[in-house]
């Protein structure tokens, strides 16, 4: 899929995703070793974006499984199409029981869900299992077979093995501790807040209209806010939002009044806003 780590960063950058060396190295290794990639990190640092960018770069189809509390086998793996099975039974009235039974548990009546879809395809596939921590613990057990052997066992049909291994990305907000068994099968990548230089490039890429000086200031203030130990530290998505806001307001320098009025874009809790205002010597809000 990729020839070298540099190749990964260059091609991801063409797709609009600026990868840090850590991200590029891990993506390269995941492709080379054929292992799933577990991406953890705070909200808004581009975990899901990474999977999309990899799919775009590799010219692969993106299959997405969005996890939520209560997601189960029939949502993740496969389901039998009961309505169609009933139709089939009532259509063939004069058939013997044996014929009907073997027939209604065939491929035709199977509804593939994301995991099965990703395993069965012949074309290159990126499988994104989003917000794995939101799913129940039982769901992890289900994933183990898929992630280690890239196969799924359907009792009535037998085992389906991937002809072409999908590139698997799991994301997690660490809302729940994932099991050790799951972690063991994956390469682990923690995407934190980016270095100043990288974040400047990201802002420049996403908000090209903003002046260089203002971009620089925005990134510096975001970095300072992150060092403040807030309830919700601003992530890249918030920095970009803030930059867009400043562009829309037509600000050309980061003056105190502008910061005071727009702090709500970058901080999402009233406690945080007050604390930041005190630390940054803004006047009372």
């Amino acid at each position: 899929m990729f020839t070298s780590v540099d190749d990964v960063s260059v091609r991801l950058a063409e797709a609009g995703y600026l990868a840090s060396p850590a991200v590029a190295t891990t993506v390269f290794l995941a492709a080379r070793l054929g292992k799933p990639l577990l991406v953890e990190g705070p909200a808004g640092v581009g975990k899901t974006e990474l999977a999309k960018a990899v799919a775009q770069v590799a010219g692969a189809r993106l299959v997405r499984l969005q996890c939520y509390e209560g997601v189960d086998e029939s949502r993740a793996l496969y389901e039998w199409n009961h309505a169609k099975q009933l139709l089939r039974i009532s259509a063939g009235r004069d058939e013997s029981w044996d014929e009907t039974r073997t027939d209604i548990f065939s491929e035709e009546f199977l509804l593939p869900r994301p995991l099965l879809t990703a395993i069965r395809g012949d074309e290159p596939t990126v499988l994104l299992i989003d917000e794995t921590d939101k799913a129940d613990v039982e769901m992890e057990g289900l994933l183990l077979e898929v992630l280690s052997d890239f196969q799924i066992t359907v009792p009535e049909l037998g085992t389906v093995t991937a002809t072409r291994r999908p590139f698997v990305v799991l994301t997690s907000n660490a809302g729940r501790e994932l099991s050790e068994a799951l972690r063991r099968r994956c390469l682990f990548l923690h995407i934190g807040f980016p270095e100043e230089e990288l974040e400047r490039r990201i802002v420049r890429l996403k908000v090209p209209g903003l002046g260089a000086a203002l971009t620089e200031s925005v990134v510096r203030v975001a970095g300072a806010l992150r060092a403040m130990d807030l309830r919700k530290a601003p992530s890249v998505a918030e920095t970009v939002d803030w930059a867009r806001t400043l562009l829309a307001l037509g600000a050309d320098t980061l003056a105190e009044s502008v910061v005071r009025d727009t702090l709500g874009v970058i901080l999402k809790h009233q406690d945080d806003i007050q604390k930041a205002a005190a630390k940054l010597d803004l006047d009372a809000l």
Partner: peptide, 16 residues
């Protein structure tokens, strides 16, 4: 060396 560091971290570690 830095690539090596990231590569080893990705394969050996399980948490931040």
């Amino acid at each position: 060396r830095e690539l090596l560091r990231e590569g080893l971290a990705a394969t050996l570690l399980h948490g931040p």
